[in-house]
């Protein structure tokens, strides 16, 4: 999108939001329709259950509605909403981490298991199977480590973008990302050894 086009969108959004602030939740439905795809695309990286993703998305929009007064309109609404979604995802990861931590290979499909047991140079993996393996491996990471790894390695975000989304300092983000990568490598190696 060009700079002029982006400015127009921001202006339209600001007008819509100004209307919503004085209006009813029905008007907010228009904002939800415009941004629901973005919110789902952030949250599905942290949860596989479709119903839970829907709950988390609803929670994100509810938080956005409650905090609407704090949105100053200087940046696009989507940036502000993404930050809320990332914080909802982090809270969810923290809760999940309290529930289960151990690695259970019975949760992996046959293709994923075959890939783990494969030779030195392995074939391409189907996205769903890769997700199964990573989901299991990341269970041993802290919520923050999992978040930073997903944002950086899977979503391809830069350190600056991660800092904006999480409110972490640049140094903290770099340290977490470094530790998370090292830990993931170690866990994957352990899973591979245990399976062979």
């Amino acid at each position: 999108m060009s700079a002029v086009g982006e400015n127009e969108t921001v202006k339209d959004e600001a007008e819509l939001l100004a209307r919503i602030r004085n209006g009813s939740p029905d008007d907010f439905g228009e904002i939800v329709r415009q941004h629901q795809g973005l919110v789902f695309s952030i949250l599905y990286r942290y949860e596989r259950d479709a119903h839970l993703i829907e709950d988390l998305a609803q929670d994100t929009f509810l938080k956005a509605w409650k905090a609407l007064e704090q949105f100053d309109g200087r940046a696009p609404f989507s940036h502000w909403l993404s930050r809320i979604a990332v914080h909802v995802a982090l809270d969810h990861l923290r809760k999940k981490q309290r529930i289960k931590k151990e690695i259970g290979f019975d949760e992996l499909g046959e293709d994923a298991l075959d890939w783990l047991q494969g030779e030195e140079q392995r074939d391409e993996l189907e996205p769903g199977r890769a997700r199964e393996i990573l989901e299991l491996a990341m269970r041993e990471l802290t919520a923050e480590e999992r978040l930073v790894l997903t944002l950086q390695e899977i979503e391809g975000k830069s350190v600056k973008e991660i800092c904006e989304l999480t409110d972490w300092s640049s140094a903290a983000t770099r340290v977490r990302a470094f530790r998370a990568r090292a830990k993931l490598k170690k866990i994957l190696l352990k899973m591979e050894t245990e399976k062979k």
Binding site: E124, A130, R131, K185
Partner: peptide, 17 residues
């Protein structure tokens, strides 16, 4: 192999709203 794993995970599609 780790890069292959991450690259494959990157391709996963978001669910339908």
């Amino acid at each position: 192999n780790i890069q292959k794993l991450l690259a494959a995970a990157r391709k996963e599609q978001a669910p339908e709203v």
